[in-house]
């Protein structure tokens, strides 16, 4: 019968979803259960594996190595941190931080026009080409890229050949003669290390920057120009402050990646150590785990300080 109560009920509530359907119903009524189910595994992972290992590392840095036997002394002490202040270790820290800062600054400068063009003007096929161009370097092996750069920068490499071809070799030689940033060839100089860092981390700056610039409405720029601001003034007073969260996000990538990398300076550069390499050599055969741990704490502290400064300067106000 059409009018029976059961048929009427079926018209209102569709049945037949089985057990899976009933589980979905429970989730719908109590969304907290679903949230717990979804979040517990990653939180456990993060909590135990990540935070746990970080704490273990931190603990290690408060031990010290026994001068006599080379064994680790499991008494809490700040001696290992004191060792960080040795001239040689301080050199490593300063060298790394300075490089990271310069690489970050340079990537902001190089990435901005690219990101700005992509965010404001590129459409359709050009936009796809932009993404391809920026992402392509990320797809090929990191090592392959660095070896390729070694070939470009070597004394008998592509760049040198190009300078010779254009009779500008004197320019390169004059540059390489500058102490500190120069060297026997580009590939054994800080300049080479810098160039490769810049190349490898640039996509990590371009992408967040482009995302941030895309969120700045076009009429903000017109409004600024309308109120008498030259393009440069518009850039300084409107575009940069509004794109700052993207710049900060990108700089966190480029800065921390440079701080931690130990492969690029090993292949390109003058063999002077960076923090990552120092960690690698101290934790290896040397068995000086406390000093290695203390070295790893350095970038963590620097990044914490950097974020705190950025927050104080209002970098996240426009979020």
């Amino acid at each position: 019968m059409n009018n029976s109560a059961n048929d009427r009920r079926g018209a209102v509530i569709s049945a037949g979803f089985g057990l899976a359907g009933q589980i979905s119903d429970v989730f719908w009524r109590k969304p907290v259960i679903l949230l717990l189910l979804m979040l517990t595994p990653p939180l456990l992972w993060l909590g135990v594996v990540y935070i746990g290992s970080l704490l273990a590392l931190l603990a290690q840095s408060f031990f010290s190595i026994d001068e006599f036997s080379g064994l680790i002394n499991y008494h809490l002490t700040l001696k290992t941190y004191g060792e960080l202040l040795n001239p040689a270790n301080l050199d490593i820290i300063l060298r790394t931080v300075l490089m990271a800062a310069i690489v970050t600054l340079a990537s902001v400068i190089v990435a901005f026009p690219v990101a700005f063009y992509a965010a404001r003007y590129a459409r359709g096929r050009w936009k796809a080409l932009f993404y391809l161009g920026v992402m392509l370097p990320l797809w090929s092996s990191y090592l392959v890229k660095i070896y390729a750069w070694k070939l470009i920068l070597a004394k008998e490499g592509i760049l040198n050949w190009f300078f010779e071809l254009t009779h500008l070799k004197w320019l390169l030689d004059a540059y390489l003669a500058i102490p500190l940033i120069g060297g026997n060839s580009l590939s054994v100089s800080y300049t080479g290390t810098f160039l490769v860092f810049l190349y490898v981390w640039l996509p990590f700056m371009v992408l967040p920057m482009q995302a941030a610039l895309e969120r700045v409405p076009a009429n903000f720029l017109e409004a600024s120009s309308d109120l008498g601001a030259t393009p440069w003034q518009t850039f300084r007073n409107v575009l940069l402050p509004l794109a700052l969260p993207g710049v900060i996000a990108g700089s966190i990538f480029t800065f921390s990646l440079t701080l931690g990398d130990y492969i690029i300076p090993q292949i390109i550069g003058s063999s002077r150590l960076f923090i990552g390499q120092a960690v690698y050599s101290h934790q290896g055969t040397a068995g000086n785990i406390p000093l290695a741990a203390a070295f790893t704490v350095v970038p963590v502290v620097i990044m914490g300080f950097y974020l705190w400064m950025a927050k104080r300067k209002g970098a996240f106000d426009a979020l």
Binding site: D91, I92, R272, L273, S281, H282, G284, A286, N288
Partner: peptide, 17 residues
């Protein structure tokens, strides 16, 4: 002089110390 000192000192030498 034990090996771990070799490590830290050689780092210093390469770093110009």
């Amino acid at each position: 002089v034990p090996y771990y000192r070799w490590v830290s000192d050689y780092i210093g030498v390469i770093g110009g110390r």
